[in-house]
């Protein structure tokens, strides 16, 4: 029972953050929920080993991102109707609202890997080395994916001119 309790504590503490990352990865609330659930089931199946290793975050993050790429590979996302940008009532945040919509649409045109790189680097604030560890690839691959992702964003949304300086 101690393992189950510690798992519940961990989920309660990290659920909001995981859900937000999943939303950025999928661009859809329902898919984000599914992704979080599936990732946490995987985590629960190995919880004793994960928690014994200290900080569970790196492993949980790895599961989340790999699950997302795995979905894409299995074409699950293609088969499912892709939701439009969430139709939620939010406070008017102009003047950034137009830019936000543009970013959201531009993100959708990235591959899951490119998207994951951006989310890990600019949302989770991980270094290139940490990002490479989560995605199980080399630092060079992280760099090239970042470069390609930003280039695609600039190409699909020229109005995001300020991205030019981002590296």
């Amino acid at each position: 029972m101690a393992a189950e309790d510690s798992f519940r504590d961990y989920v309660a503490a990290r659920l909001a953050g995981l859900s937000r990352a999943a939303y950025l990865l999928t661009g859809d609330r329902h898919l984000a929920e599914d992704l979080v659930q599936q990732a946490l089931v995987q985590v629960a199946s190995r919880w004793e080993r994960i928690s014994a290793g200290g900080d569970p975050d790196p492993y949980v993050r790895r599961v989340l991102y790999h699950q997302h790429v795995s979905w894409w590979r299995r074409r699950r996302l293609v088969d499912r109707p892709h939701a439009d940008p969430p139709d939620v009532v939010v406070a008017d945040r102009v003047p950034d609202k137009d830019t936000e919509l543009t970013v959201r649409q531009a993100l959708r045109r990235l591959t899951p890997r490119q998207r994951a790189v951006l989310v890990l680097r600019y949302f989770e604030d991980l270094t290139e080395v940490q990002t490479a560890e989560v995605l199980g690839c080399s630092v060079g691959t992280v760099k090239s994916n970042t470069r390609d992702a930003l280039a695609r964003l600039r190409a699909t949304a020229p109005e995001l001119e300020y991205l030019r300086g981002a590296r």
């Binding site: 999943a22 939303y23 199946s45 945040r93």
Partner: peptide, 30 residues
């Protein structure tokens, strides 16, 4: 890339709803 912009988009996502038997589902998977 602007991290603040991603933060604002992410703010739209509430915490995911989880099934009651999440732990048991993990055990079954094991």
């Amino acid at each position: 890339m602007n991290g603040r912009m991603l933060q604002e988009i992410a703010d739209e996502m509430p915490p995911a709803r989880l099934p009651d038997d999440l732990w048991r589902a993990g055990r079954r998977l094991r």
